[in-house]
Write a protein that binds this DNA or RNA. Structure first.
Lengths: 200, 200
DNA sequence: GATTTGACAAACCGACCGGTCGGTATGGCG
DNA sequence: CGCCATACCGACCGGTCGGTTTGTCAAATC
């Protein structure tokens, strides 16, 4: 026994991730997931008690993976903008559908009961906003950022980054550096025209 | 004949809006919509050919309403920040579920076929981002904003505004003015600490 | 080598839901 | 009044989908 248990489970999780990114929760059937993973529905239900449990397992696995990735990206000691730049670059290096997984949380958050929902939000926040929040908190502490609510600012930062990753934005940037610079500049200095700013 | 045709249709549309805000497209049944509107499913299907058509009709009606509202809000001649402030205030004055309707577009956009999807996106963009875009374009033209892609900037602005409308943000602001000022300040001047800025 | 156990397959079930359809009520119009 | 169009009702159907049940086979256990 055991044997390729792990490969089967991970194959199911990967198939589920791909399908849930491509289609709505309700429009993805467990049969499709099973087929896509090369197993039968019976096998799938042998490893997961329900469609919901499978979805949640997939999301938590993905989010934990991202959390580790992003945490490492901002780990080096550097200035606040540099570290947020590292974060953005780590995000950009992900293949498109890996990035899209982050979007699922917001899309599907209201289809689960309160308990599962809260767990998902916690996992999502740990994966991305809280990583940014810690960097921003350091930035506030070091005087690189104006005093303010670090959590709110981190969400704002993530929101700006997401827009800069949209399909429309794809056509506006020629490379990743440009995109990163744009987001950082907007977040730190805003969109107003510079009228000869004096930096101390 | 005719008579309360209009009231029946609008009651169905309103019931649909409320339900689709509260639950996923797939989790809202047409029977629920009919019940909530005080009619039978037969009556509903007398006025709408399908669930999808009903949803789309509801969304287009809502978005057109918002488009008018927002367009009026930014109409007065004023500075770019002032006009964007008007836009934010118009948004804030809406009851919560009216605001949430705007979120539906992003949530449900990928459950329809290409044609309906494109229509929805156009209606959404006309309702909010393009209103902001025109203001931002004027701002760039008048030198209030740094030169840049007005469309991309408008999306960034909307993204910032949405975060500032989140439930968490609710707890960080005591009144609407504070919220508006926060978003405007962040959008125009960024989050960096001010080191004695000289404005011409 | 008999038995247990876990991984998987395949057929199946029950509930639900979008959509249909035959029919009724109402009210304008000639 | 007779005729027709439109608003609306409510029972019903076909299909789908999450989940279950039963069976099989191979590896582990004794």
């Amino acid at each position: 026994m055991v044997m390729n248990l792990e490969t089967t489970v991970t194959r199911i999780l990967q198939a589920a991730a791909a399908l849930f990114v491509a289609k709505n929760y309700a429009d993805v059937t467990v049969s499709q997931i099973a087929d896509s993973a090369g197993v039968t529905k019976g096998a799938l239900y042998h490893h997961f008690r329900s469609k919901e449990e499978l979805y949640l397992a997939m999301m938590h696995a993905e989010l934990e993976e991202k959390r580790l990735l992003f945490s490492e990206a901002v780990a080096p000691k550097a200035s606040c903008p540099e570290r947020l730049g590292h974060l953005l670059r780590a995000f950009l290096k992900l293949p498109r559908d890996q990035r899209e997984v982050m979007r699922l949380v917001r899309r599907d958050i209201n289809i689960f009961r309160a308990h599962a929902r809260a767990d998902l939000i916690v996992a999502y926040q740990a994966a991305l906003p809280m990583v940014a929040e810690r960097v921003i908190q350091d930035g506030i502490h070091d005087g690189e950022l104006a005093a303010g609510d670090a959590r709110l600012l981190s969400w704002q930062f993530v929101a700006l980054a997401e827009v800069a990753l949209s399909r429309y934005a794809d056509s506006r940037f020629t490379n990743a550096d440009q995109r990163v610079a744009f987001v950082l500049d907007l977040f730190f200095h805003g969109a107003a025209a510079q009228h000869g700013v004096a930096i101390s």
